[in-house]
Design a binder for these strands. Structure first.
Lengths: 250, 250
DNA sequence: GTTTGACCTTGTCGTAGCGTCAACGTTTCT
DNA sequence: AGAAACGTTGACGCTACGACAAGGTCAAAC
């Protein structure tokens, strides 16, 4: 009594023959009778069943869920699954909206450098901090960008509070001068007399909050990070600065 | 100069060690130096690179896209990718909204039978057509549901236009009577005299548009489908009806 | 000295829903 | 009769890792 082979059935449902066989494999659609040549022979009931599968799939149900729904044909099961699916879609909508918002604020930025995609405030801070092309300023920005992504929301606030005083116009000008002197020390010897002098000026320039934070986390990872990124003389500047701060705090 | 092993790095970035190794495998993150024991040894630059990867991934870029962006660090590439991503997200939002709308109209329905999830108008038609528990009405509804999912939008309209006259109260009452007589013929012989009588009444009951459509598609699949679903005597009713209509049209 | 537990290593399988060969038989059209 | 267009089963590929397996390494506890 059958009428169709797999290609016609698939065309009727608007899907591929591979998909139909896949549904057989998953037990979604029962395997029909075979003709003597081994071809599958489908009837109307199969077309109806396949159409139902396709409708449910287009709604976004997973094939496993569809099989469950088809298995026990009660009204309740389907209603449950659909409600759950709707809740899931609602969550997705929120998530997508959030990501689009982040994307929009990113695309609004004029410069999409390698430090991009951080929080907007930190991005603004990083822009201001760009030390007129200083190589060492790049290290500082790397550190801040890393901290920004690593930190939780309230930690970000703390970091921004510490950084903000450094962005005042006059503080910024002095910071740029310090960056320039650090750049000069790039290839210098750690024993160079300019090292100690710069360390002293650096300590003098630091706002109290930041100095305290540096002491508090002197045993954390950031000194090693600086040592990792900077040249020996530059690293020595920070080692000396931290030592000075710690001594003074005692 | 290294400072971290893979666990610390992963914790810093808020991901799993497996993910870090995966990024190595894809060439997203360069393999760092190894310690004498074979452990990977990471420095600050790796943490920074990983943080950037993670930010981009959280925005929804695929790892392949991230690798491309990282490979050529120009501003344009990133901006292109992000714009494309945003367009994609916008499309997803529309798609999700559509699916949620369909879900809502589905969940609003009191009965989620196996014919559910068709277009709302067809769903209403199917409800009206429920022939007081007639077995043959179920076959009719199967056919309509299948056509509804198979047809394109304007074809759906045509089908609905054809079906609508049958849903008028008096037409519906006569249709129910016909369904009952078809049910009676379930186990009958195709030569039963009631077959010819029912075929004549069926022809008389059909609205002109539907009769024309049946003639037009007499060579299509639906007669075979009926033969597939109905008992021999019932199928004979339709064969006779189609023959009568075709003769009369000549 | 050894045992425990927390690390690290490479490698493989599994996921969802099919697409895409491969290698082969059948039907149909010319 | 040959080619095009169907059908069959089987296996690999895709994303972004998670979850094992079967070990080696290292610090501290016993």
């Amino acid at each position: 009594m059958g009428t169709m082979r797999i290609g016609e059935l698939a065309a009727l449902a608007g899907i591929s023959t591979r998909a139909v066989r896949h549904y057989h494999h998953l037990g979604l659609l029962p395997e029909p009778v075979r003709l003597t040549n081994g071809y599958r022979d489908y009837g109307l009931r199969d077309a109806v069943a396949l159409a139902r599968i396709r409708r449910l799939a287009e709604l976004g149900l997973s094939l496993d869920e569809i099989r469950d729904v088809l298995a026990d044909d009660r009204d309740k099961e389907l209603r449950e699954v659909l409600a759950e699916l709707d809740a899931d879609l609602a969550r997705q909508q929120v998530a997508i909206a959030e990501r689009r918002a982040r994307l929009a604020s990113l695309l609004a930025e004029p410069d999409l450098g390698p430090d991009s995609a951080v929080s907007p405030q930190m991005a603004a801070a990083l822009r201001d901090l760009t030390g007129g092309g200083s190589a060492f300023a790049a290290v500082d920005r790397k550190l801040l960008a890393l901290m920004d992504t690593v930190a939780g929301p309230e930690e970000k606030e703390q970091i921004l509070d510490l950084v903000r005083p450094l962005l005042e116009p006059d503080a910024l000008a002095r910071a740029h001068a310090l960056y320039a002197r650090l750049d000069e020390l790039a290839g210098a010897d750690p024993a160079d007399p300019r090292v100690a002098a710069l360390a002293a000026d650096l300590v003098a320039h630091l706002p109290p909050g930041m100095a305290a934070a540096m002491i508090d986390h002197a045993d954390a990872e950031w000194p090693a990070w600086i040592a990792d990124e900077a040249t020996p003389a530059q690293a020595e500047v920070f080692r000396l600065a931290v030592t000075t701060l710690t001594e003074r705090a005692r």
